[in-house]
Amino acid sequence: MSVQTICELMGVARATYYRWRKQKGTQTTKEKRDQDVGEKCAAHKYRYGYRKIASFFPHLAEKTVQKIMQKYNWSCRVKIKKRKRTGQPTSIAPNHLGRDFQANEPLQKLLTDITYLPFGQSMLYLSSIMDVYNGEIIAYTIGTTQDTQFVLDTLSQAKGIASEAILHSDQGSVYTSYDYQKQVKERGIIMSMSRKGTPADNSPIETFHSSLKSETFYLDGIHSTTNACVIRIVEEYINYYNHIRIQMKLNNQSPVQYRQLAV
C-alpha cells in the first residue's frame, strides 16, 4: 500500500506523517536530561539519593533531580528513611508476655507490629495481628500512613478476643498513644510491650513480616511496581500463609487447618 492510501485509511494528512517520521528518533532536551540522570542512578546501582546524584549535574537544581528520580522510581533503594510514628505517647506497658510464645487456646496471646512495604509508587505500611496459638494472621491493614488510626483499624478487625487476653507490641508511639491504650483497655485486653530495642521480644510476627517479603517480592525480584500490585501480593500471601502454607511446628499443617482440627 502506498503512503497516500495508508494516510487516507488512517485519516491522517501526508504532511503530518512525514513530519512525524522526520521527528521520530529525535530526543528532546528534557528526555536527554532524564536519561542522563537515570544512567547515573543505574551506574551507582541506586545507592545514591537525589542530593548525591544532583552533584553530578551542577546545572540542575536538586529539586529537579529529585522529581526526575521520583517520576521514574530511581530513588535510593539502600536505606528507606524511617518516618516518625505519630501519636501522643502516654505510658509503656510491662512485658507480660516474656517471650513465652506458647498458648493453649486461640486468641489467648496476640502479637502486633508494623512493617514497611517499599515496593510501590509510594511507601506503604502493613499492620498485622498474629495469634500466638497457631501463628494465624487474624487482622491486618495496609495503608500509606502509620498513625494511631492505622493500628486502631487493625485492632477493630480482631473479633472474639476474650477479656484478659494479652496483646504484645513494641514501644512505638502508635501503641503507647492514649487512643490506642484506651481502646485496648475498653476491650479488657492486657497490653504488653517489648523492651526498648529488643525485637526478639516480638520475634514470631517479625519473622512473619520477613517471610512475607522474602517469599514474594525478593523471591520474584520485584523491586518496584504499583501500589495496587503491592496490596494484591500482600493480601494473596496472607491468605496463602493462613490457609495453605504448612509449618513444621504445627505438625505440617497450615495455621487455619491446625486451629480447625484442634476444635
Score class of each variant (00 low, 15 high):
residue 192 S to R: 04
residue 11 G to C: 02
residue 63 K to H: 11
residue 253 Q to F: 01
residue 240 Y to A: 03
residue 204 P to E: 00
residue 82 K to S: 13
residue 46 Y to P: 02
residue 159 K to H: 09
residue 88 Q to D: 15
residue 232 R to C: 09
residue 206 E to K: 12
residue 32 K to I: 12
residue 57 F to N: 08
residue 235 E to S: 08
residue 263 V to M: 12
residue 182 K to G: 08
residue 165 A to G: 05
residue 227 N to C: 15
residue 103 A to H: 00
residue 74 W to Q: 09
residue 162 A to S: 07
residue 150 F to H: 06
residue 16 T to G: 02
residue 157 Q to H: 15
residue 202 N to Q: 00
residue 125 Y to C: 03
residue 224 S to A: 13
residue 152 L to C: 05
residue 262 A to L: 04
residue 217 F to R: 09
residue 164 E to K: 09
residue 241 Y to L: 02
residue 242 N to T: 08
residue 78 V to H: 08
residue 128 S to M: 07
residue 90 T to Q: 15
residue 99 R to K: 08
residue 154 T to P: 01
residue 41 C to Y: 05
residue 56 F to M: 13
residue 23 Q to G: 10
residue 7 C to R: 08
residue 86 T to Y: 11
residue 226 T to E: 04
residue 175 Y to W: 06
residue 180 Y to P: 01
residue 164 E to G: 06
residue 200 A to H: 07
residue 99 R to M: 08
residue 115 T to G: 02
residue 29 T to K: 11
residue 102 Q to N: 12
residue 101 F to Q: 00
residue 154 T to C: 05
residue 253 Q to R: 10
residue 101 F to M: 03
residue 153 D to H: 10
residue 137 I to E: 00
residue 192 S to P: 05
residue 212 L to K: 06
residue 163 S to E: 15
residue 10 M to Y: 08
residue 28 T to L: 08
residue 142 I to R: 01
residue 219 L to I: 11
residue 155 L to R: 05
residue 134 N to F: 02
residue 6 I to F: 09
residue 240 Y to G: 03
residue 203 S to V: 00
residue 242 N to L: 05
residue 76 C to A: 11
residue 168 H to K: 05
residue 208 F to D: 03
residue 109 K to L: 04
residue 52 K to C: 11
residue 36 D to L: 10
residue 22 K to E: 09
residue 137 I to W: 02
residue 75 S to Q: 15
residue 72 Y to S: 03
residue 201 D to M: 06
residue 115 T to C: 04
residue 186 E to N: 14
residue 209 H to Q: 09
residue 97 L to R: 02
residue 146 Q to M: 10
residue 262 A to G: 03
residue 165 A to L: 05
residue 12 V to T: 03
residue 208 F to E: 04
residue 77 R to M: 06
residue 263 V to A: 14
residue 144 T to A: 14
residue 178 Y to F: 10
residue 251 N to Y: 10
residue 263 V to N: 08
residue 134 N to E: 01
residue 224 S to W: 03
residue 171 Q to W: 03
residue 89 P to F: 01
residue 25 G to C: 04
residue 221 G to S: 14
residue 94 P to H: 06
residue 178 Y to V: 15
residue 177 S to L: 07
residue 259 R to T: 00
residue 25 G to V: 08
residue 102 Q to D: 12
residue 24 K to W: 09
residue 20 W to D: 11
residue 97 L to W: 00
residue 132 V to Y: 00
residue 214 S to E: 12
residue 54 A to H: 03
residue 200 A to G: 08
residue 254 S to T: 05
residue 64 T to A: 06
residue 18 Y to S: 07
residue 43 A to L: 09
residue 186 E to R: 15
residue 142 I to Y: 04
residue 140 Y to T: 04
residue 258 Y to W: 08
residue 11 G to K: 15
residue 34 D to A: 04
residue 181 Q to D: 09
residue 48 Y to H: 12
residue 109 K to H: 05
residue 145 T to Y: 13
residue 35 Q to M: 13
residue 67 K to M: 07
residue 159 K to E: 14
residue 5 T to W: 13
residue 254 S to H: 02
residue 263 V to C: 14
residue 95 N to K: 02
residue 107 L to D: 01
residue 167 L to P: 05
residue 149 Q to P: 03
residue 242 N to H: 12
residue 228 A to F: 13
residue 221 G to T: 08
residue 148 T to D: 00
residue 132 V to N: 01
residue 172 G to Y: 07
residue 260 Q to N: 14
residue 5 T to I: 10
residue 216 T to A: 14
residue 21 R to V: 06
residue 60 L to C: 11
residue 120 G to T: 12
residue 44 H to Y: 10
residue 157 Q to W: 13
residue 55 S to I: 15
residue 47 R to L: 07
